[in-house]
Design a protein around this nucleic acid. Structure first.
Lengths: 241, 241
DNA sequence: TAGTGGTCTAGACCACTTC
DNA sequence: AAGTGGTCTAGACCACTAA
Protein backbone atom coordinates (compact mmCIF):
# COMPACT_ATOMS: atom_id res chain seq x y z
CA UNK A 1 0.00 0.00 0.00
CA UNK A 2 1.89 2.93 1.32
CA UNK A 3 4.55 3.43 3.99
CA UNK A 4 2.28 5.84 5.82
CA UNK A 5 -0.61 4.37 7.76
CA UNK A 6 -3.15 7.14 7.30
CA UNK A 7 -2.58 7.19 3.52
CA UNK A 8 -2.99 3.41 3.35
CA UNK A 9 -6.32 3.82 5.13
CA UNK A 10 -7.34 6.56 2.70
CA UNK A 11 -6.47 4.33 -0.25
CA UNK A 12 -8.38 1.42 1.23
CA UNK A 13 -11.52 3.47 1.90
CA UNK A 14 -11.34 5.21 -1.48
CA UNK A 15 -11.18 1.82 -3.15
CA UNK A 16 -14.35 0.74 -1.36
CA UNK A 17 -16.07 3.88 -2.63
CA UNK A 18 -14.74 3.57 -6.19
CA UNK A 19 -15.69 -0.10 -6.39
CA UNK A 20 -19.16 0.77 -5.10
CA UNK A 21 -18.83 -1.34 -1.98
CA UNK A 22 -19.77 1.97 -0.38
CA UNK A 23 -22.40 3.96 -2.31
CA UNK A 24 -23.34 7.65 -1.98
CA UNK A 25 -25.40 8.09 1.17
CA UNK A 26 -23.99 4.94 2.83
CA UNK A 27 -22.60 5.24 6.33
CA UNK A 28 -19.00 4.25 6.93
CA UNK A 29 -18.11 2.08 9.90
CA UNK A 30 -17.79 4.11 13.08
CA UNK A 31 -14.41 5.53 13.98
CA UNK A 32 -14.13 2.98 16.79
CA UNK A 33 -14.74 0.11 14.34
CA UNK A 34 -12.20 1.55 11.91
CA UNK A 35 -9.63 1.74 14.75
CA UNK A 36 -9.95 -2.02 15.20
CA UNK A 37 -10.23 -2.74 11.48
CA UNK A 38 -6.97 -0.92 10.68
CA UNK A 39 -5.22 -1.25 14.07
CA UNK A 40 -4.82 2.49 14.28
CA UNK A 41 -5.43 5.14 16.89
CA UNK A 42 -8.48 7.36 16.72
CA UNK A 43 -6.41 10.39 15.61
CA UNK A 44 -4.95 8.43 12.71
CA UNK A 45 -8.39 7.28 11.58
CA UNK A 46 -9.64 10.84 11.86
CA UNK A 47 -6.71 12.12 9.79
CA UNK A 48 -7.68 9.70 7.03
CA UNK A 49 -11.35 10.69 7.23
CA UNK A 50 -10.40 14.36 7.16
CA UNK A 51 -8.47 13.81 3.93
CA UNK A 52 -11.38 11.96 2.32
CA UNK A 53 -13.67 14.78 3.38
CA UNK A 54 -11.38 17.43 1.82
CA UNK A 55 -11.36 15.52 -1.42
CA UNK A 56 -15.14 15.38 -1.53
CA UNK A 57 -15.59 11.68 -0.85
CA UNK A 58 -17.27 11.80 2.53
CA UNK A 59 -18.93 14.14 5.01
CA UNK A 60 -19.72 13.68 8.68
CA UNK A 61 -22.78 14.27 10.81
CA UNK A 62 -22.00 14.71 14.52
CA UNK A 63 -23.69 12.12 16.68
CA UNK A 64 -24.49 9.91 13.68
CA UNK A 65 -21.51 8.94 11.57
CA UNK A 66 -19.49 9.47 8.41
CA UNK A 67 -21.27 9.19 5.06
CA UNK A 68 -20.30 8.84 1.41
CA UNK A 69 -21.00 12.03 -0.59
CA UNK A 70 -23.29 12.39 -3.55
CA UNK A 71 -20.50 13.58 -5.84
CA UNK A 72 -20.63 16.77 -7.87
CA UNK A 73 -20.02 16.04 -11.55
CA UNK A 74 -20.99 19.38 -13.08
CA UNK A 75 -18.30 21.65 -11.65
CA UNK A 76 -15.58 22.80 -14.04
CA UNK A 77 -12.38 24.79 -13.54
CA UNK A 78 -10.22 26.79 -15.87
CA UNK A 79 -7.44 29.33 -15.82
CA UNK A 80 -8.04 32.69 -17.41
CA UNK A 81 -5.82 35.71 -17.70
CA UNK A 82 -6.31 38.37 -20.33
CA UNK A 83 -2.66 39.30 -20.43
CA UNK A 84 -1.00 35.97 -20.08
CA UNK A 85 -3.45 33.26 -21.08
CA UNK A 86 -4.23 33.78 -24.75
CA UNK A 87 -2.94 31.51 -27.49
CA UNK A 88 -0.39 34.13 -28.38
CA UNK A 89 1.95 36.24 -26.30
CA UNK A 90 0.86 39.82 -25.60
CA UNK A 91 3.89 42.05 -26.04
CA UNK A 92 2.31 45.47 -26.14
CA UNK A 93 -0.76 47.33 -24.94
CA UNK A 94 -2.04 50.36 -26.86
CA UNK A 95 -3.98 52.92 -24.89
CA UNK A 96 -6.80 54.27 -27.05
CA UNK A 97 -8.46 56.57 -24.55
CA UNK A 98 -8.63 57.45 -20.87
CA UNK A 99 -11.56 59.47 -19.55
CA UNK A 100 -12.58 60.55 -16.09
CA UNK A 101 -16.35 60.78 -16.20
CA UNK A 102 -19.70 60.23 -14.59
CA UNK A 103 -20.38 56.83 -16.12
CA UNK A 104 -23.61 55.57 -17.69
CA UNK A 105 -26.17 54.42 -15.11
CA UNK A 106 -25.56 50.75 -15.87
CA UNK A 107 -21.89 51.10 -14.98
CA UNK A 108 -22.59 53.34 -12.01
CA UNK A 109 -24.88 50.71 -10.53
CA UNK A 110 -22.26 48.02 -10.84
CA UNK A 111 -19.32 50.06 -9.58
CA UNK A 112 -21.53 51.25 -6.72
CA UNK A 113 -19.98 54.72 -6.74
CA UNK A 114 -20.44 57.27 -3.98
CA UNK A 115 -22.51 60.37 -4.78
CA UNK A 116 -20.57 62.62 -7.09
CA UNK A 117 -17.78 60.06 -7.45
CA UNK A 118 -16.48 59.76 -10.97
CA UNK A 119 -15.23 56.71 -12.82
CA UNK A 120 -12.26 56.17 -15.08
CA UNK A 121 -12.97 54.68 -18.47
CA UNK A 122 -10.01 53.18 -20.29
CA UNK A 123 -10.02 51.66 -23.74
CA UNK A 124 -7.03 49.54 -24.65
CA UNK A 125 -5.92 47.15 -27.34
CA UNK A 126 -3.69 44.14 -26.66
CA UNK A 127 -1.10 43.47 -29.33
CA UNK A 128 1.08 40.55 -30.25
CA UNK A 129 3.84 40.91 -32.80
CA UNK A 130 2.32 44.17 -34.09
CA UNK A 131 -1.09 42.55 -34.65
CA UNK A 132 -4.01 43.84 -32.61
CA UNK A 133 -5.50 40.84 -30.85
CA UNK A 134 -8.05 41.95 -28.31
CA UNK A 135 -9.83 45.03 -27.06
CA UNK A 136 -10.89 45.94 -23.55
CA UNK A 137 -13.02 48.65 -22.04
CA UNK A 138 -12.31 49.12 -18.36
CA UNK A 139 -14.17 51.06 -15.70
CA UNK A 140 -12.64 51.87 -12.33
CA UNK A 141 -13.93 54.04 -9.50
CA UNK A 142 -11.96 57.29 -9.69
CA UNK A 143 -9.91 57.95 -6.58
CA UNK A 144 -7.67 61.00 -6.51
CA UNK A 145 -4.00 60.18 -7.03
CA UNK A 146 -4.84 56.51 -7.35
CA UNK A 147 -1.65 54.77 -8.41
CA UNK A 148 -3.63 52.26 -10.49
CA UNK A 149 -4.18 54.92 -13.14
CA UNK A 150 -0.49 55.48 -13.58
CA UNK A 151 0.03 51.70 -13.67
CA UNK A 152 -2.65 51.50 -16.34
CA UNK A 153 -0.43 53.57 -18.59
CA UNK A 154 2.70 51.60 -17.86
CA UNK A 155 1.71 47.95 -17.49
CA UNK A 156 -0.37 45.42 -19.38
CA UNK A 157 -1.67 43.90 -16.18
CA UNK A 158 -2.07 47.19 -14.33
CA UNK A 159 -3.78 45.40 -11.44
CA UNK A 160 -0.75 43.24 -10.71
CA UNK A 161 0.46 45.39 -7.79
CA UNK A 162 -3.08 45.36 -6.38
CA UNK A 163 -3.34 41.61 -6.89
CA UNK A 164 -0.12 40.99 -5.05
CA UNK A 165 -1.21 43.08 -2.11
CA UNK A 166 -4.86 41.98 -1.92
CA UNK A 167 -4.47 38.52 -3.37
CA UNK A 168 -6.33 36.64 -0.65
CA UNK A 169 -9.37 38.89 -0.68
CA UNK A 170 -9.86 39.35 -4.43
CA UNK A 171 -13.12 38.01 -5.75
CA UNK A 172 -13.18 37.87 -9.55
CA UNK A 173 -16.14 36.86 -11.66
CA UNK A 174 -16.56 36.40 -15.39
CA UNK A 175 -19.50 36.32 -17.71
CA UNK A 176 -18.61 34.63 -20.96
CA UNK A 177 -20.79 35.27 -23.98
CA UNK A 178 -20.48 35.49 -27.74
CA UNK A 179 -21.30 38.35 -30.06
CA UNK A 180 -20.69 39.81 -33.50
CA UNK A 181 -17.97 42.45 -33.45
CA UNK A 182 -19.00 46.07 -33.83
CA UNK A 183 -17.62 47.93 -36.83
CA UNK A 184 -14.98 49.55 -34.64
CA UNK A 185 -13.82 46.19 -33.30
CA UNK A 186 -13.86 44.62 -36.76
CA UNK A 187 -11.56 47.32 -38.01
CA UNK A 188 -9.20 47.41 -35.07
CA UNK A 189 -8.84 43.68 -34.62
CA UNK A 190 -8.92 42.94 -38.33
CA UNK A 191 -11.87 40.60 -38.03
CA UNK A 192 -14.11 39.67 -40.94
CA UNK A 193 -17.65 40.97 -40.69
CA UNK A 194 -19.13 37.48 -40.29
CA UNK A 195 -16.70 36.20 -37.64
CA UNK A 196 -18.10 35.85 -34.13
CA UNK A 197 -16.01 36.77 -31.08
CA UNK A 198 -15.96 36.19 -27.34
CA UNK A 199 -17.47 38.92 -25.20
CA UNK A 200 -16.25 38.53 -21.64
CA UNK A 201 -17.18 40.81 -18.78
CA UNK A 202 -15.09 40.77 -15.64
CA UNK A 203 -15.83 42.13 -12.19
CA UNK A 204 -13.06 42.33 -9.62
CA UNK A 205 -14.09 42.94 -6.05
CA UNK A 206 -12.31 43.32 -2.73
CA UNK A 207 -14.12 40.81 -0.55
CA UNK A 208 -12.91 42.45 2.64
CA UNK A 209 -14.23 45.95 1.89
CA UNK A 210 -16.90 44.79 -0.58
CA UNK A 211 -15.77 47.48 -3.05
CA UNK A 212 -15.55 46.93 -6.79
CA UNK A 213 -12.06 47.48 -8.14
CA UNK A 214 -12.78 46.96 -11.82
CA UNK A 215 -15.56 46.31 -14.28
CA UNK A 216 -14.34 45.43 -17.75
CA UNK A 217 -15.45 44.26 -21.16
CA UNK A 218 -13.07 42.11 -23.12
CA UNK A 219 -13.37 41.23 -26.80
CA UNK A 220 -11.23 38.59 -28.45
CA UNK A 221 -11.52 36.27 -31.39
CA UNK A 222 -11.75 32.50 -30.74
CA UNK A 223 -8.58 32.33 -32.84
CA UNK A 224 -6.69 33.69 -29.86
CA UNK A 225 -8.67 32.28 -26.95
CA UNK A 226 -9.93 28.80 -26.31
CA UNK A 227 -11.45 28.09 -22.97
CA UNK A 228 -10.52 24.62 -21.76
CA UNK A 229 -12.21 23.66 -18.54
CA UNK A 230 -12.19 20.39 -16.65
CA UNK A 231 -13.41 18.79 -13.45
CA UNK A 232 -11.10 19.72 -10.56
CA UNK A 233 -8.54 17.19 -9.41
CA UNK A 234 -7.67 16.23 -5.86
CA UNK A 235 -4.03 17.09 -5.60
CA UNK A 236 -3.03 20.68 -5.30
CA UNK A 237 0.52 21.92 -5.30
CA UNK A 238 0.73 25.23 -3.57
CA UNK A 239 4.45 25.80 -3.31
CA UNK A 240 6.12 28.93 -4.57
CA UNK A 241 8.81 28.30 -7.15
CA UNK B 1 -13.23 35.09 18.44
CA UNK B 2 -14.70 31.64 18.36
CA UNK B 3 -15.62 29.05 20.93
CA UNK B 4 -13.27 26.56 19.30
CA UNK B 5 -9.56 27.05 19.84
CA UNK B 6 -8.28 25.78 16.50
CA UNK B 7 -10.71 28.03 14.60
CA UNK B 8 -9.67 31.04 16.67
CA UNK B 9 -6.07 30.32 15.71
CA UNK B 10 -7.05 30.02 12.04
CA UNK B 11 -8.85 33.38 12.23
CA UNK B 12 -5.90 35.00 13.91
CA UNK B 13 -3.37 33.70 11.38
CA UNK B 14 -5.65 34.52 8.43
CA UNK B 15 -5.93 38.06 9.70
CA UNK B 16 -2.17 38.41 9.78
CA UNK B 17 -2.04 37.22 6.17
CA UNK B 18 -4.92 39.43 4.99
CA UNK B 19 -3.48 42.49 6.73
CA UNK B 20 -0.11 41.76 5.12
CA UNK B 21 1.68 41.27 8.43
CA UNK B 22 2.60 37.99 6.74
CA UNK B 23 3.36 38.27 3.02
CA UNK B 24 3.54 35.54 0.38
CA UNK B 25 6.79 33.63 0.86
CA UNK B 26 7.14 34.62 4.52
CA UNK B 27 7.73 31.88 7.07
CA UNK B 28 5.25 31.49 9.92
CA UNK B 29 6.51 31.04 13.44
CA UNK B 30 7.49 27.44 14.14
CA UNK B 31 4.87 25.11 15.51
CA UNK B 32 6.62 25.16 18.88
CA UNK B 33 6.44 28.98 18.98
CA UNK B 34 2.78 28.92 17.98
CA UNK B 35 2.10 26.43 20.82
CA UNK B 36 3.36 29.02 23.31
CA UNK B 37 1.82 31.97 21.48
CA UNK B 38 -1.67 30.45 21.56
CA UNK B 39 -1.29 28.19 24.64
CA UNK B 40 -2.29 25.18 22.58
CA UNK B 41 -0.98 21.67 22.07
CA UNK B 42 1.00 20.76 18.98
CA UNK B 43 -1.93 18.79 17.49
CA UNK B 44 -4.24 21.78 17.84
CA UNK B 45 -1.73 24.07 16.15
CA UNK B 46 -1.30 21.50 13.39
CA UNK B 47 -5.07 21.24 12.92
CA UNK B 48 -5.19 25.01 12.37
CA UNK B 49 -2.27 24.92 9.95
CA UNK B 50 -3.85 22.03 8.07
CA UNK B 51 -7.02 24.09 7.58
CA UNK B 52 -5.04 27.08 6.31
CA UNK B 53 -3.19 24.79 3.95
CA UNK B 54 -6.44 23.34 2.56
CA UNK B 55 -7.76 26.83 1.92
CA UNK B 56 -4.63 27.77 -0.02
CA UNK B 57 -3.14 30.20 2.48
CA UNK B 58 -0.02 28.30 3.49
CA UNK B 59 2.14 25.34 2.57
CA UNK B 60 4.79 23.53 4.55
CA UNK B 61 8.31 22.34 3.84
CA UNK B 62 9.54 19.51 6.09
CA UNK B 63 12.61 20.44 8.08
CA UNK B 64 12.14 24.15 7.33
CA UNK B 65 8.77 25.58 8.28
CA UNK B 66 5.35 26.77 7.19
CA UNK B 67 5.16 29.48 4.54
CA UNK B 68 2.55 31.86 3.16
CA UNK B 69 1.43 30.89 -0.37
CA UNK B 70 1.73 32.98 -3.48
CA UNK B 71 -2.01 32.97 -4.14
CA UNK B 72 -3.60 31.90 -7.39
CA UNK B 73 -5.85 34.64 -8.75
CA UNK B 74 -6.54 33.33 -12.24
CA UNK B 75 -8.49 30.16 -11.45
CA UNK B 76 -12.23 30.24 -12.16
CA UNK B 77 -15.03 27.78 -11.47
CA UNK B 78 -18.45 27.31 -12.97
CA UNK B 79 -21.26 24.81 -13.09
CA UNK B 80 -22.28 23.42 -16.46
CA UNK B 81 -24.89 20.88 -17.37
CA UNK B 82 -26.38 20.65 -20.83
CA UNK B 83 -29.66 19.25 -19.59
CA UNK B 84 -30.18 21.18 -16.41
CA UNK B 85 -28.12 24.34 -16.56
CA UNK B 86 -29.46 26.44 -19.42
CA UNK B 87 -31.49 29.60 -18.90
CA UNK B 88 -34.61 27.66 -19.76
CA UNK B 89 -35.92 24.29 -18.66
CA UNK B 90 -35.39 21.39 -21.05
CA UNK B 91 -38.60 19.37 -21.15
CA UNK B 92 -38.03 17.20 -24.20
CA UNK B 93 -35.25 15.69 -26.26
CA UNK B 94 -35.81 14.90 -29.92
CA UNK B 95 -33.70 12.15 -31.40
CA UNK B 96 -32.76 13.07 -34.97
CA UNK B 97 -30.57 10.10 -35.80
CA UNK B 98 -28.72 7.15 -34.32
CA UNK B 99 -26.02 5.42 -36.35
CA UNK B 100 -23.61 2.65 -35.56
CA UNK B 101 -20.57 3.31 -37.72
CA UNK B 102 -16.84 3.41 -38.19
CA UNK B 103 -16.37 7.05 -37.28
CA UNK B 104 -14.24 9.65 -39.08
CA UNK B 105 -10.55 9.44 -38.19
CA UNK B 106 -10.67 12.54 -36.00
CA UNK B 107 -13.32 10.95 -33.81
CA UNK B 108 -11.66 7.55 -33.87
CA UNK B 109 -8.45 9.06 -32.53
CA UNK B 110 -10.24 10.74 -29.67
CA UNK B 111 -12.43 7.79 -28.70
CA UNK B 112 -9.38 5.55 -28.91
CA UNK B 113 -11.38 2.65 -30.30
CA UNK B 114 -10.10 -0.91 -30.54
CA UNK B 115 -9.44 -2.30 -34.01
CA UNK B 116 -12.72 -2.92 -35.78
CA UNK B 117 -14.69 -1.37 -32.95
CA UNK B 118 -17.55 0.81 -34.11
CA UNK B 119 -18.90 4.00 -32.63
CA UNK B 120 -22.42 5.22 -32.06
CA UNK B 121 -23.28 8.63 -33.45
CA UNK B 122 -26.37 10.27 -32.04
CA UNK B 123 -27.84 13.60 -33.08
CA UNK B 124 -30.34 15.14 -30.71
CA UNK B 125 -32.17 18.41 -30.20
CA UNK B 126 -33.04 19.76 -26.76
CA UNK B 127 -36.43 21.43 -26.55
CA UNK B 128 -38.12 23.73 -24.10
CA UNK B 129 -41.81 24.50 -24.37
CA UNK B 130 -41.88 23.19 -27.96
CA UNK B 131 -39.01 25.45 -29.03
CA UNK B 132 -35.80 23.81 -30.18
CA UNK B 133 -33.02 25.24 -28.04
CA UNK B 134 -29.82 23.34 -28.57
CA UNK B 135 -28.35 20.62 -30.72
CA UNK B 136 -25.83 17.95 -29.81
CA UNK B 137 -23.85 15.40 -31.75
CA UNK B 138 -22.62 12.59 -29.54
CA UNK B 139 -20.10 9.83 -30.20
CA UNK B 140 -19.79 6.78 -27.96
CA UNK B 141 -17.71 3.64 -28.35
CA UNK B 142 -20.12 0.93 -29.47
CA UNK B 143 -20.37 -1.94 -27.02
CA UNK B 144 -22.80 -4.73 -27.78
CA UNK B 145 -25.99 -4.56 -25.69
CA UNK B 146 -24.70 -1.44 -24.00
CA UNK B 147 -27.53 -0.11 -21.86
CA UNK B 148 -26.41 3.47 -22.50
CA UNK B 149 -27.90 3.30 -25.97
CA UNK B 150 -31.32 2.40 -24.66
CA UNK B 151 -31.00 5.17 -22.06
CA UNK B 152 -30.11 7.54 -24.88
CA UNK B 153 -33.57 6.96 -26.32
CA UNK B 154 -35.38 7.35 -23.04
CA UNK B 155 -33.62 10.05 -21.04
CA UNK B 156 -32.34 13.54 -21.63
CA UNK B 157 -29.29 12.91 -19.50
CA UNK B 158 -28.65 9.38 -20.68
CA UNK B 159 -25.36 9.26 -18.78
CA UNK B 160 -27.06 9.79 -15.43
CA UNK B 161 -26.99 6.08 -14.48
CA UNK B 162 -23.32 5.96 -15.47
CA UNK B 163 -22.59 9.15 -13.54
CA UNK B 164 -24.20 7.78 -10.42
CA UNK B 165 -22.20 4.59 -10.62
CA UNK B 166 -18.84 6.03 -11.70
CA UNK B 167 -19.20 9.46 -10.15
CA UNK B 168 -15.87 9.53 -8.37
CA UNK B 169 -13.81 8.51 -11.38
CA UNK B 170 -15.43 10.64 -14.07
CA UNK B 171 -13.13 13.14 -15.69
CA UNK B 172 -15.01 15.66 -17.83
CA UNK B 173 -13.42 18.35 -19.93
CA UNK B 174 -14.92 21.11 -22.02
CA UNK B 175 -13.65 23.25 -24.83
CA UNK B 176 -15.74 26.39 -25.20
CA UNK B 177 -15.63 28.26 -28.46
CA UNK B 178 -17.87 30.39 -30.64
CA UNK B 179 -18.98 29.88 -34.20
CA UNK B 180 -21.57 30.83 -36.80
CA UNK B 181 -24.36 28.27 -37.02
CA UNK B 182 -24.47 25.99 -40.06
CA UNK B 183 -27.54 26.20 -42.25
CA UNK B 184 -28.94 23.08 -40.63
CA UNK B 185 -28.51 24.50 -37.14
CA UNK B 186 -29.95 27.87 -38.18
CA UNK B 187 -33.07 26.17 -39.40
CA UNK B 188 -33.52 23.75 -36.55
CA UNK B 189 -32.80 26.20 -33.75
CA UNK B 190 -34.51 29.12 -35.45
CA UNK B 191 -31.41 31.26 -35.35
CA UNK B 192 -30.86 34.25 -37.62
CA UNK B 193 -28.07 33.84 -40.11
CA UNK B 194 -25.89 36.50 -38.45
CA UNK B 195 -26.29 35.31 -34.84
CA UNK B 196 -23.23 33.64 -33.31
CA UNK B 197 -23.58 30.60 -31.05
CA UNK B 198 -21.57 28.67 -28.50
CA UNK B 199 -19.76 25.59 -29.76
CA UNK B 200 -18.85 23.39 -26.82
CA UNK B 201 -17.08 20.07 -27.09
CA UNK B 202 -17.17 17.71 -24.16
CA UNK B 203 -15.05 14.67 -23.40
CA UNK B 204 -16.07 12.32 -20.62
CA UNK B 205 -13.50 9.83 -19.45
CA UNK B 206 -13.33 7.08 -16.86
CA UNK B 207 -10.18 7.96 -14.94
CA UNK B 208 -9.89 4.48 -13.51
CA UNK B 209 -9.89 2.61 -16.83
CA UNK B 210 -8.70 5.58 -18.92
CA UNK B 211 -11.47 4.88 -21.46
CA UNK B 212 -13.46 7.62 -23.17
CA UNK B 213 -17.18 7.33 -22.48
CA UNK B 214 -18.39 10.19 -24.65
CA UNK B 215 -17.22 12.78 -27.10
CA UNK B 216 -19.85 15.38 -27.92
CA UNK B 217 -20.46 18.64 -29.73
CA UNK B 218 -23.00 20.98 -28.28
CA UNK B 219 -24.48 24.03 -30.01
CA UNK B 220 -26.55 26.60 -28.21
CA UNK B 221 -27.36 30.26 -28.61
CA UNK B 222 -26.06 32.71 -25.96
CA UNK B 223 -29.73 33.52 -25.42
CA UNK B 224 -30.03 30.24 -23.58
CA UNK B 225 -26.61 29.86 -22.03
CA UNK B 226 -24.53 32.32 -20.09
CA UNK B 227 -21.36 31.06 -18.52
CA UNK B 228 -20.80 32.69 -15.16
CA UNK B 229 -17.51 31.74 -13.57
CA UNK B 230 -15.89 33.00 -10.39
CA UNK B 231 -12.89 32.42 -8.17
CA UNK B 232 -13.51 29.42 -5.89
CA UNK B 233 -14.55 30.06 -2.30
CA UNK B 234 -13.23 28.35 0.81
CA UNK B 235 -16.31 26.77 2.28
CA UNK B 236 -17.73 23.69 0.68
CA UNK B 237 -20.96 22.06 1.71
CA UNK B 238 -20.92 18.44 0.73
CA UNK B 239 -23.99 17.06 2.44
CA UNK B 240 -26.67 15.14 0.61
CA UNK B 241 -30.13 16.71 0.87
C1' DT C 1 -28.12 5.24 28.35
C1' DA C 2 -24.97 3.92 24.90
C1' DG C 3 -22.90 5.21 20.77
C1' DT C 4 -21.36 8.73 17.66
C1' DG C 5 -18.31 12.37 16.04
C1' DG C 6 -15.69 17.04 17.74
C1' DT C 7 -12.05 18.97 20.39
C1' DC C 8 -7.83 18.84 22.95
C1' DT C 9 -3.67 17.25 25.51
C1' DA C 10 1.09 15.41 26.44
C1' DG C 11 3.96 12.76 25.01
C1' DA C 12 6.93 9.84 21.52
C1' DC C 13 9.94 8.77 17.46
C1' DC C 14 11.21 9.86 12.75
C1' DA C 15 13.41 12.28 8.56
C1' DC C 16 14.94 16.39 7.02
C1' DT C 17 17.49 21.03 7.06
C1' DT C 18 20.85 24.14 8.89
C1' DC C 19 24.95 25.26 11.06
C1' DA D 1 23.68 18.97 17.41
C1' DA D 2 19.62 21.64 17.42
C1' DG D 3 15.49 22.83 15.24
C1' DT D 4 11.87 21.87 11.95
C1' DG D 5 7.72 19.52 10.32
C1' DG D 6 5.46 14.44 9.70
C1' DT D 7 3.44 10.55 11.91
C1' DC D 8 1.31 8.12 15.61
C1' DT D 9 -0.46 6.83 20.24
C1' DA D 10 -3.53 6.60 24.39
C1' DG D 11 -5.97 8.84 26.75
C1' DA D 12 -9.77 12.63 28.15
C1' DC D 13 -14.18 15.38 28.11
C1' DC D 14 -17.84 17.32 25.35
C1' DA D 15 -22.39 17.73 22.56
C1' DC D 16 -25.36 15.37 19.81
C1' DT D 17 -28.43 11.33 18.27
C1' DA D 18 -31.11 7.41 18.90
C1' DA D 19 -33.54 3.93 21.31
Amino acid sequence: MSDVLYLAIVTSLKEKILKSKLKPGDMLNSETSLMNEYSASRMTIRKSLSLLSNEGYIYSVPGKGNFVCKPEVDIFQFKFNKYDGLNTHIDRVKLLSVKVMFPPKQIDRILNLDDNQKAVEVVRVLCSDKKEIAMEIIYLPYVHNQPVIEDMLKFANYLKPVEEKLAFVLDKSLNISVTMPSEEICERLNIKINEPIFEITEIIKNEATNKILEYAWFYVSPKYLSIKASTPKDSKDKRIF
